[in-house]
Design a protein around this nucleic acid. Sequence first.
DNA 1: ATGAAAGCGCTAACAC
DNA 2: GTGTTAGCGCTTTCAT
Lengths: 347, 347
Amino acid sequence: MIGAVRRALRLQDVAEAAGVSLATASRSLSGSNGVSPALAARVRAVADELGYVANIHARSLAGGSTSSIGLVVHEIGDPYFTEIAAGVMDVGEQHGLMVQVRQTRRDPDHELAQIRALVANRVDGILIAGSGYVDPRAEQAVRRQLEAFRSAGGRVAVIGRHHLGVDAVLPDNIAGGRTIAEHLLELGHRRVAILAGSRGLTTIADRLAGIAEAVEAAGGAPEDWPVIEAAFTRQGGKDAALRLLDDRADVTAVIALNDDMAIGALSVLRASGVSVPGDMSVAGFDDIEVATDIAPSLTTVRLPMREMGELALSLALSAPAARPRRRTTGHQLMVRDSTAAPRSQAV
Amino acid sequence: MIGAVRRALRLQDVAEAAGVSLATASRSLSGSNGVSPALAARVRAVADELGYVANIHARSLAGGSTSSIGLVVHEIGDPYFTEIAAGVMDVGEQHGLMVQVRQTRRDPDHELAQIRALVANRVDGILIAGSGYVDPRAEQAVRRQLEAFRSAGGRVAVIGRHHLGVDAVLPDNIAGGRTIAEHLLELGHRRVAILAGSRGLTTIADRLAGIAEAVEAAGGAPEDWPVIEAAFTRQGGKDAALRLLDDRADVTAVIALNDDMAIGALSVLRASGVSVPGDMSVAGFDDIEVATDIAPSLTTVRLPMREMGELALSLALSAPAARPRRRTTGHQLMVRDSTAAPRSQAV
DNA sequence: ATGAAAGCGCTAACAC
DNA sequence: GTGTTAGCGCTTTCAT
């Protein structure tokens, strides 16, 4: 070890140490041909010895692509997004792309800031995985930013219903909502509470719409199914469940609009001595991995999150189309232990 | 909107549109003084109008810092790391730093690649949050890379016991292991199985050491407590629990060396008709958020993950010390519903 | 208060 | 097969 240097090594340092020119050093390290294999190997050894790592800023400024793409999610620790991210990273790896994940925490300002940061980084593509907003104006600033990015050659795709005019992977939210409501209706439930995130999110709006369709189709009135709005998180599920118990609404089942809320609700119900599914059925949405490991295991609608991530990156990477493309996913009802016929009927 | 441009906007474009020089445009956007407020405001308006975002590569190449720091974790979806990341991001936000999170998936090669990517990005600091390896040679390459990074002015800190010669936040793994073992011993358990991750990780080694201390102090033989090694994940917990059931070892309790493994084990035990804590007590480690929401709620050792993240970034940001600093954390036993006296004794 | 010009470290023509 | 050199887009002296 030589004593402390005051700045990072440059390619020039490597070139000098190896006794070659800058260009030769560059070619040796990038693996492009035009250098004798022996020389190239020696240069690489010297670089390695020195602990040299090329400055990506200089490289990207001189050359072209950063070989990286950005993924914008609501919450980095949310399993829904984790599985999407896994899909994105898989496809990314196949294409030699590094994926950087950014979180918005469901704050539109923060979202815009993260997207700008990705643009500043000159990533090759931007994927937005969070829900869109029902109000198109909420996405105005993001839309303009993305338009500038795309006109400069950047690739963009979103997962979910947005008003961004770009390629989209559309989760089966409406049909999924219909399916889970039908499941409870078939079990005999007639009045079901819905624990929802903000209605301003298209994901929520769509899942609610699907549920309403099923209720109407069964001859019921959607208004009779109370919607309790809270944060779209485990804590939100707890809050909503507490409010539900307070209201003593005469519901026999609960649909949480994602599994995390469902897990929060289960926790509160257990603490309150409400047995599931005996006294109350609970259904979730998404089928995150842990849904099968909790007690009782959670009846839910499976969305293919991983594939959604794969699909989104594939869309972004494929040749741009004249008009925005849409890919829809399927869904699957996973019946487990948290739902059953209502007690009155079961007896 | 003007038609498609072929490349990203440059500061030059903004300067021309605003009718000023490049230098004035730069100063206006960076907020440095020497520009009349009115002019600066106009330039900013023009930039905004155009959707201009400065190229961070050019900026960092010309000026200095990237105002970003890198956080290296094992698994991005692991709640343990999510909470650490939250702490890091909080402190980062206070300092105007963007945090980019990278995952190693517990693959040393991948880890090195991610660290090199961070160095290439010329982040201001690198935080490593995963466990270290018991074998110092496993960290040799990373150590050398970090030395080069630091000698170029980069800041580094780690969470966990590593052989990297840098500032470190040391989780209370040994004492925590002792505490959880003491808890089970006090309940009357004499033979406890341990579901562990790879023994090559210092985290595992330390937690096991703490448990062994407690067993010896109680006059027992640590060898009598079988250690079942599996992946340090929920799935690993399931695998280990299945092997335990196969062996029909006469244990009355299980310690999983993290909560995720404990949750996997609980799932398998439930599926096999083993009641917890009736037939078998189960304890975890870490106290991830969901530990209180599952059924039965999980007895575990709480580590202050969030504070560990905050502390790590604070260490990295503070003036470099001549010798590596160490900060130790506390821990706290959280007794919940998953542990009880063994049946023979309870009767 | 504003502008002109010199780099930052690298890649990719372009010489030889 | 190897070396020389002109930028990439920005910040920052240094002039004015």
